[in-house]
């Protein structure tokens, strides 16, 4: 039998045209992404444009002033922020990582107290930062009489980032396959040896990434410091942990509260500096993740 026309295939592979729904869904996804990016771009352009005139070395060479906006800088804010973040890292990271190791490797999840701990760490991560400010003021500054010092600020911020550090460290530790732990234990390694020599090295990139992101969140905090009754105008750099200080967000807040227009320009320039510090930290986090990412 001669087949003259194109035979009709049993399987229908011809395109029927993508359904409208599929297109609409793609558009919805792309526009959500676009909204986020457009706002970020606008923020950056606006701040850069506003602060451009004051993005000169005077900004980080000079101390703040409320009388001479044309020469005022933010050096004490930059140093204050660096002090706070370093001290916070020293306190919050070891504590957070050890807590995460306990919860992931030692805690029996069936026990009621471990369940309560887990639940409350998630709750703590959601507590507004100003509440930590009240805690710092009431307990650390007043009751422990640490006053408004770098130490008080750092302890408060440590408490603020601790739940985030714990949660991200737990995720990183959980991502290490159980077969690695079994392999190590089956060779006669103790649990501590297994954690110290296998689990931690394998999860360090994830822990580092999470920690940096947690710290960069802390850098932008102003609320807890306001609550602590911080001085917004500090004309010297911190000399130690018992020194008083200011941080960049507070400095920015102070400049914006001034009525003269030059201070608003100064504030915008300070925001650019703050954003630059944040970007550097986040880039380090991404670099770490890509550099040391493990593939199993």
């Amino acid at each position: 039998m001669a087949v003259l026309s194109t035979p009709k295939s049993a399987v229908q592979l011809a395109s029927k045209g993508r359904p409208l729904k599929e297109h609409l869904f793609r558009i919805a996804l792309l526009s959500s992404l676009a909204i986020a990016l457009i706002f970020l771009g606008m923020l950056l352009i606006y701040t850069l444009e506003e602060g451009w005139g004051r993005l000169n070395p005077m900004l980080w060479e000079n101390m703040p002033s409320i009388r001479r906006p044309e020469t005022a800088g933010i050096q004490s804010g930059i140093f204050g922020t660096l002090w706070i973040i370093s001290l916070t890292a020293l306190m919050a990271l070891p504590t957070g990582i050890l807590a995460a190791i306990y919860l992931e490797e030692y805690a029996d999840r069936g026990r009621w107290y471990n369940k309560i701990i887990e639940l409350n760490i998630s709750n703590l991560a959601a507590v507004p930062s100003i509440v930590y400010g009240i805690l710092g003021l009431g307990i650390i500054a007043r009751w422990l009489q640490f006053g408004f010092t770098v130490m008080t600020g750092a302890i408060t911020i440590s408490l603020l980032v601790l739940p985030i550090v714990i949660i991200s460290a737990r995720e990183a530790i959980r991502a290490v396959p159980p077969s690695i732990r079994e392999g190590s234990l089956a060779l006669g390694a103790t649990q501590w040896q297994t954690i110290w020599r296998q689990v931690l090295p394998a999860s360090i990139p994830g822990i580092a990434t999470g920690s940096i992101l947690a710290l960069s969140r802390a850098i932008g905090e102003a609320a807890p410091f306001l609550m602590l009754g911080a001085a917004t105008l500090v004309r010297f750099n911190p000399e130690g942990v018992w020194s008083s200080f200011t941080v960049l967000p507070l400095q920015i807040y102070n400049f914006i509260s001034q009525s003269r227009e030059e201070f608003h320009v100064l504030a915008a320039a300070a925001i650019v500096v703050l954003l630059a510090i944040l970007l550097v930290m986040n880039s380090v986090a991404i670099w770490l993740r890509n550099r040391y990412q493990k593939r199993w």
Binding site: I180, G183, A186, L187, G188
Partner: peptide, 19 residues
């Protein structure tokens, strides 16, 4: 149990070399 595992080794179903 640690001493037991030092004398009695184990190889698993899926190869699990350390990274």
């Amino acid at each position: 149990p640690i001493e037991v595992r030092r004398r009695i080794g184990m190889v698993f179903q899926k190869p699990n070399p350390f990274p």
